[in-house]
Simulated scan of single mutants.
Amino acid sequence: MAARSPAPRRVHPGDSAFTWSTEQILALSDADLAAYGLRDVRACTPPVLPAATAHGASVAAPVAGVGTLPASRAPGHDETAKGLRLTDVRCVLQGRTVLSIDEAFFPAGQVTAVCGPNGAGKTTLARAVAGLQRHCGSMELDGVRVERRERLRHTMIVMQDVQRQLFTDSVRAEIRLSASRSGAGGGKLSDAEVDQVLSEFDLLSCAEQHPLALSGGQQQRLVIATTRCSHVRVVIYDEPSSGVDRRHLESIARAVRDSARAGAVVLLITHDEDPLRAAAQTRLDLRPPSE
């Protein structure tokens, strides 16, 4: 019989609403979990995604039962295809090669998941694409070579340490700044438009607070919310779902999908299968290049 808990009651922040044993949690149905805003911790079948077109020492074969090979992994490519292309990209740190990609292509308007064990080069790839990490080789955006400084203007990255990405004195101002920095006319955003974004990420009640006064989860959602207003050409999410509940995971996955629908190249770096299932369309598996 499925475990049932008392009817929800009003609680104050920091209070415990319910207490469950492990057995009770595992007995809850998916509908029960959804009602309480909980994610399913039970093992689920991993999503099967087509493998991104890429090859090189850092590119791992798709995980059995998780990824499938694309129709072709040949170096040749369509010069007219919109997206981000990496050619002979190498990153060396302290004399050791930490990322080695002969060629990879990430289409615009699509979410590419980047997966792999710790030390495989996922964050290094994100930093290189965003122009934050020096590298050998070249990158092209829609067929035009873009240097590191240009990519800094064209790219937005949601880091794991989001405190480094908060600059203003209020949550509302952070949303406006993001739109302003991207040329989207932050000054033209009405309070209603800002409120709509904040409401989607459960941040409306914090609109006038200082960003650094928020909890870690709220800060993470705030930085992700700013991607909704950025209108940049490349958006990178580095482990955006860590520690979030079911409801907030859904809003994050929606933001990731919306970035792609707006025509951006979207990279989703994650160990978490839930955002893969909810947002990703192709998958790139990385491995340490020395393996």
Rank of each mutant, 00 (worst) to 15 (best):
L69Y: 10
L166F: 07
F201L: 14
R42N: 13
D88H: 13
P211H: 06
R254S: 10
R246P: 03
R127N: 11
S251K: 10
A260D: 08
L284A: 08
I224D: 09
T53W: 08
S290T: 13
R42F: 13
R10L: 09
V146H: 06
T80D: 15
A173Q: 08
A43I: 03
F201N: 02
V266E: 00
R254Q: 08
A51E: 14
F201C: 05
A64T: 09
F167Y: 08
T282V: 12
V197A: 06
A179S: 14
R145Y: 03
L166Y: 07
L177M: 15
S205Q: 15
F18H: 14
E174W: 06
V244Y: 04
A3P: 02
I252D: 08
A108M: 03
F106L: 07
H248S: 09
C206A: 13
G37K: 04
P8K: 01
H271C: 14
R151H: 07
A173F: 03
A31L: 12
E200C: 02
M139Y: 03
T282N: 10
R261M: 09
L212C: 07
V41N: 09
Q281E: 15
F167K: 05
S5Q: 02
A264T: 00
D32C: 01
L177G: 12
G131K: 01
F167I: 01
